[in-house]
Simulated scan of single mutants.
Amino acid sequence: MALVKAGLVVLDCAEPEKLAVFYKELLEAEETDASANRVEIRSADGTRMAFRRDANATPPSWPRPENSLQAHLDFMVEDLDAAERRIVELGGRPLEAKAAPGPYEERGFADPAGHSFTVRRVAPTSPKQG
């Protein structure tokens, strides 16, 4: 058995309850634990996240260099346009950034508290026809 197991991603924010709602809706997740300063969620595929209260939390400024990226999340989607509509509907916002080089189509966003994340289009898994 591993000495250390992967835990979960924890985002600091001023209002963990509100940020948890955004990610619960986006990931179709359920709340698994909550206290006065922390809310945890788990999606059907097992993705676990937590949101910790920090009244002094400063969101990253990416793509501007002042406060840089710090860290970000990547989510895989099949339909970038549908994902963007849902993210904006839930209170997220697109980030203006140059397209990243590479084989994946992706778009950058910020959650309601300002944390950046990326949605990437999943490459088709079916074999080529013809």
Rank of each mutant, 00 (worst) to 15 (best):
Tyr23Cys: 01
Ala99Pro: 02
Leu3Pro: 06
Thr125His: 08
Ala2Thr: 10
Thr32Trp: 02
Glu28Ala: 15
Ala2Ile: 08
Glu96Arg: 00
Pro94Ser: 01
Lys5Ala: 13
Glu15His: 14
Ser116Cys: 09
Phe109Ala: 00
Val21Met: 14
Arg64Gln: 05
Arg121Ala: 06
Ser61Tyr: 01
Phe22Cys: 09
Ala100Gln: 11
Val39Thr: 07
Glu15Ile: 11
Met1Ile: 15
Leu11Ile: 10
Ala123Met: 12
Glu28Tyr: 07
Gly46Lys: 12
Val4Gln: 07
Phe75Gln: 01
Ser126Asp: 02
Leu19Ser: 01
Pro63Val: 03
Arg86Ile: 09
Leu19Phe: 13
Asn56Lys: 03
Gly114Lys: 04
Ala50Asn: 02
Ala55Cys: 10
Ala83Glu: 00
Ala100Cys: 10
Ala55Gln: 15
Pro124Phe: 02
Leu8Tyr: 09
Trp62Cys: 03
Trp62Leu: 05
Pro101Gln: 01
Ala110Tyr: 07
Lys128Thr: 13
Ala34Glu: 06
Val119Cys: 08
Arg120His: 06
Ala110Phe: 02
Ala82Phe: 05
Pro94Arg: 03
Ile41Met: 02
Arg93Tyr: 04
Ala20Phe: 14
Phe75Asp: 00
Gln70Gly: 07
Lys18Gln: 15
Ala113His: 00
Arg85Gly: 03
Ile41Ser: 03
Ala82Asp: 09
Leu11Lys: 05
Arg93Cys: 09
Ala123Val: 11
Ala6Tyr: 01
Ala99Ile: 07
Asp12Pro: 14
Leu95Thr: 03
Asn67Lys: 05
Tyr23Gln: 01
Arg93Lys: 09
Ser68Gln: 11
Val77Gln: 06
Ala6Leu: 13
Phe22His: 02
Ala71Lys: 02
Ala82Thr: 08
Ala20Ile: 06
Thr47Tyr: 15
Arg53Glu: 12
Leu11Cys: 11
Val119Thr: 12
Ala2Pro: 12
Met76Val: 14
Lys24Pro: 03
Arg86Phe: 07
Ile41Glu: 09
Arg64Thr: 06
Asn56Pro: 05
Leu3Phe: 14
Asn37Lys: 11
Glu96Ile: 03
Leu73Trp: 03
Lys128Gly: 06
Phe22Arg: 06
Asp74His: 13
Arg38Ala: 15
Gln129Trp: 13
Arg86Tyr: 03
Ser61Val: 01
Glu17Arg: 12
Leu69His: 02
Thr125Met: 15
Glu30Met: 06
Ala36Trp: 09
Lys128Arg: 14
Glu89Thr: 12
Phe22Asp: 08
Ala123Asp: 06
Glu30Ala: 15
Ser43Lys: 12
Ala50Met: 07
His115Ile: 10
Thr118Gln: 01
Ala36Thr: 11
Arg120Pro: 05
Cys13Ser: 11
Ser68Arg: 12
Glu28Ser: 10
Gly46Met: 07
Ser43Phe: 10
Glu89Gln: 13
Pro60Arg: 05
Arg42Asp: 10
Asp45Trp: 11
